[in-house]
Each structure stands twice: as C-alpha cells, then as structure tokens.
C-alpha cells in the first residue's frame, strides 16, 4: 500500500525545488485552513484570501523552516495570525471610514457576509453563535472542530498550556450552546 509522505518529508522536497510536493501540502491542508479562517473571519471571501496568503507566506518561509514542531501547528498558527490581522485591519478601516456608531451597527452584521448562505436559518444561527464567541476561545474551538486537532497540538499552536485549551474549548461550547438555546434550536 502506498503511504503518503509526511509533512516534513514534503517540505524537504519543496526545499529541493519540487513544487509538486508543495501542491500535495496545499491540498492536504487547504480545506481545514479555509474552514478555520472562515470561522474566525465570518467571510468566505476573506477566508479564501487569508488561506492563500497563509500558503504563500509558508512557501516564502520554507528556506528558514526547521523541524522543531509539528508542521500543521505552524501552519494554523500562521493562519490565525493572518486572520486576526485582517480582523484588526477591517475594524480600523471601518472606524476610519465611518463614525463609531455606524461601525457598531455594521459589526453586528458582519456575521453574514454571504447573504445567500445566511438565508439558511441554521447556518445563520451558528454563525451568530460563533461570532459571539470571543478570542481566544473561538480559535481553540475552531482548531478542535475544523482542524480536528488534539489538545496538545492546539496548545502548541496557540502557545498556551493544555489545561487552558481544555477550559477554552469547554467555555466556547457552552457559549454556542447558550446562543442556540436562546434561538430555540436546542432544548
């Protein structure tokens, strides 16, 4: 049976000039990175751009990349930084362009950037709930649910103890559950 090469083997190949190995890496992680970013940004468009940025940044950083940690923790750590930067820039831009009251009103609507998808009630409710979960609870929760990471990897990605990860995930779940209960979607 043919086994897929592990991440660091692929990275060594990319360093040697094999762009196909990088394509394998992109295909392996792009969906999880995208879903993680979408959960943070609440925008498919932004999520796609940040996912691209993340892989391009990874490619540029490859010559300096050393096998010190699990590869995907570096990847998702980078994706998280890029997504949070985008949120900050988006907020700053809104503040520059509009008055604060308008920004607050807009911020409440940011959870549904894609109106067609938001039409689905359940999807909208989940977005509302997820959007209400503050950082860093949301990152921990998304890494668990979207990237299917174990607690150690999440701790490595977020740079915090495993116990903290456990409490953040539990707390995020409770917040989402409370929101869904309020909307009558859960008993």
């Amino acid at each position: 049976m043919k086994t897929e090469p592990d991440d660091w083997t692929l990275i060594e190949r990319v360093k040697a000039g094999d762009l196909n190995a990088f394509t394998v890496l992109v295909r392996r992680y792009q969906t999880a990175v995208y879903r993680f970013c979408e959960g943070l940004l609440m925008s498919r468009e932004d999520a796609e751009e940040v996912t691209q940025d993340c892989f391009v940044a990874l490619y540029r950083a490859l010559p300096r990349l050393e096998e010190r940690a699990r590869f995907f923790t570096l990847l998702f750590g980078s994706a998280r930084n890029l997504a949070l930067n985008r949120i900050r820039n988006r907020t700053r831009r809104l503040f520059r362009e509009r008055d604060p009251q308008a920004v607050q009103a807009t911020a409440g609507q940011q959870h549904s950037p894609d109106a067609a998808c938001a039409a689905e009630e359940l999807g909208a409710a989940i977005r509302d709930a997820l959007n209400a979960v503050p950082e860093p609870f949301r990152s921990a929760f998304l890494l668990r649910e979207e990237a299917d990471m174990d607690y150690n990897a999440i701790a490595e990605t977020l740079g915090c103890p495993v116990g903290t990860v456990r409490s953040r995930i539990a707390r995020a779940r409770e917040m989402i559950r409370a929101m869904l209960q309020e909307k009558g979607l859960l008993p």
Binding site: V26, Q30, E48, Q52, C117, G123, I126
Partner: peptide, 29 residues
C-alpha cells in the same frame, strides 16, 4: 447536540479546492 448541529450547519463551508490550489500556485510562481 451542539456539536452535531454545528457540523450540520457548516458542512457546506468549504472552498473550491481546485481553484484555491491553483490560486496559491499561481501566486507562488
């Protein structure tokens, strides 16, 4: 239940994988 509902609602949240891969490779090249 919360978890099941969450994953049900977000099962369609995925990129166009081929387009995303192409876009990344184009930018790299």
């Amino acid at each position: 239940q919360t978890r099941a509902l969450y994953h049900t609602a977000r099962r369609d949240v995925s990129p166009d994988a081929d387009a995303l891969t192409s876009a990344v490779l184009d930018r790299i090249q």
